[in-house]
Amino acid sequence: MTCRPTSRRLAPVLALSAAAALLSACGTADRLANVGRIPELSAIQNPALAPGYQPVNMPMPAVDLGERQGNSLWRAGARSFFKDQRAGRVGDILTVTIQINDKAQMQNQTKRSRNGSDSMGIPNLFGLESSVNRVLPNSVDPSSLVSASGTSTTDGNGAIQRQEQINLQVAAIVTQIMPNGNLVVQGKQEVRVNGEVRELQLAGIIRPEDITSANTISYEKIAEARISYGGRGNISEVQQPRWGQQVLDIIAPF
């Protein structure tokens, strides 16, 4: 008997194929238009006006209504008697130092073994054991009616080894001051070398107290840190699977 797929089953597949073809056609047209050209750098824009930008909303402590004292030339938290050179207002710039040197090694080994044996018989049961042959063949021994045995063995090994090392510096801009005084920073850096663009993006929340007198801060002091480092260009495109292979990896059932 031959089974034919119904229109309902074909509809999702056809829709997915059409969407993939449309997206690939747009991407292919853009790539064909840029053949022979080096990747263009993005224009400098206000991060707060980006389409995906959303102001950060975090739990805030109660407002401290402290009494202010006048007639003082010194400001609390200032590193300089006359002026604090650290970033503290929206639009100020500070330098973020990224020095990641992580290494993780994990190894697991599991072994399990089990042997079991069960047997059951009816040597004597109110004298009825002699009547078993009337129901079962004569070769059946009532003393060994059921016998079962089982063996189970499991052996598993696993190992993980990961090492990451990144040494970078990026200038970030203060985009928001939260009610408790913490600063929301966001930075982006692009470098083009021989037709390949390397892009570094950073975002997070910092405390003004963690900014050094040189107006720098280390990445491990950034809360909710989002750090992205990658590239785009001819070399990055060669390292990616072709769009046809990506579509097959998604829709292939086996």
Rank of each mutant, 00 (worst) to 15 (best):
S130Q: 14
L183N: 02
Q239R: 14
P208S: 03
R86C: 00
G70N: 10
D249L: 12
G150V: 06
S17M: 06
P12G: 02
T151V: 15
T153Y: 11
A25I: 09
Q85D: 06
Q240F: 05
L200K: 01
A48H: 07
D118W: 09
G91E: 04
T95N: 10
G231V: 03
N133F: 15
K103P: 04
V35F: 15
T154F: 11
V96E: 00
E40V: 11
Q99D: 10
M178G: 01
Y229A: 02
N101Q: 14
Q109I: 03
R31Y: 05
G36A: 15
L49V: 09
A225W: 02
A76P: 05
I206H: 01
M106F: 09
V146P: 00
A62W: 06
L41E: 03
Q161G: 15
Q165T: 10
V56E: 01
S236H: 12
C3G: 15
L202Y: 00
Y53A: 08
L200N: 00
Q163S: 15
Y53L: 06
Q54M: 03
T212P: 01
A33Y: 05
R232Q: 06
N124F: 14
D92E: 04
G27K: 10
V174W: 01
A48S: 13
T6E: 07
E196L: 05
T212A: 00
L136I: 15
Q246V: 08
